[in-house]
Simulated assay, not measured.
Amino acid sequence: MTDNKIIVKYLDSSTEKLEFVYEYINTSRYQDELIKDYNLWNQICSSLYVINDTILAIKSYLSKKYPKDIGRKYLYTYGILQALFTQQDAVINLTECFNVETKVCDVFREIRNLRNISIGHPTKLERREGVYYGYISRITLSKFSLNYIKPIR
């Protein structure tokens, strides 16, 4: 099975798991209680919508051919990094609603860090270990990889 098919299968199973959450929150005995806390209800709904939207974005990214035009390559790359970042935030916020602790695995932590230093705050990012002034190496952009250049002061 190709990597794309494995990822799509995982995303499909994630969508099925979200259906369980939708069923739970829309069961009247639970929904009545959840809606009493207006902010909690909005956080649950917002998180679920964003998770579903980002699943659609990721599946679209995987199913489409990576562009040859350099500007579109940047849009695709920035877009997928932002979608992954946004999805992680939504999952964290959703689990928070139900008092479930989450642990960000190393791969997702690396994606968050790459997104922050490459497209979130590329021109100056201050961290304990130094200040980063980074950028994505244009010639290395591809659908599943890139080189990030990070001179440290």
Rank of each mutant, 00 (worst) to 15 (best):
N26P: 06
I92A: 04
Y30A: 07
N26K: 13
V8W: 01
P151I: 15
I44F: 06
R112M: 08
G79A: 07
L84K: 08
G120H: 04
E23K: 15
A83C: 09
L75K: 14
D53N: 08
G120D: 03
F98S: 06
K103S: 11
K17I: 05
S28L: 11
Y30L: 06
S46F: 11
K64D: 10
K68S: 09
K68R: 06
D32A: 12
I152T: 13
Y66V: 01
Q43A: 11
R127K: 15
S142T: 14
Y148P: 01
N99V: 05
H121G: 05
N52K: 13
N116R: 01
D32L: 14
E33A: 14
D12P: 00
G134N: 10
T54A: 06
N52V: 01
Y76V: 05
Y78M: 08
D69E: 13
L34Q: 09
E33N: 11
K9N: 13
P151H: 14
Y24R: 07
T102Y: 02
Y49I: 00
E129D: 15
Y22K: 13
E96Y: 15
L81T: 05
I117C: 09
W41F: 14
Y22S: 09
T86G: 07
H121N: 06
I117F: 09
F144M: 08
D12G: 00
R72Y: 12
T95D: 01
K65G: 00
S47Y: 06
Y148G: 09
A83W: 03
L62D: 01
I111E: 08
T95Y: 14
V107S: 15
S142A: 15
R72D: 12
V100H: 12
S63P: 00
I70Y: 08
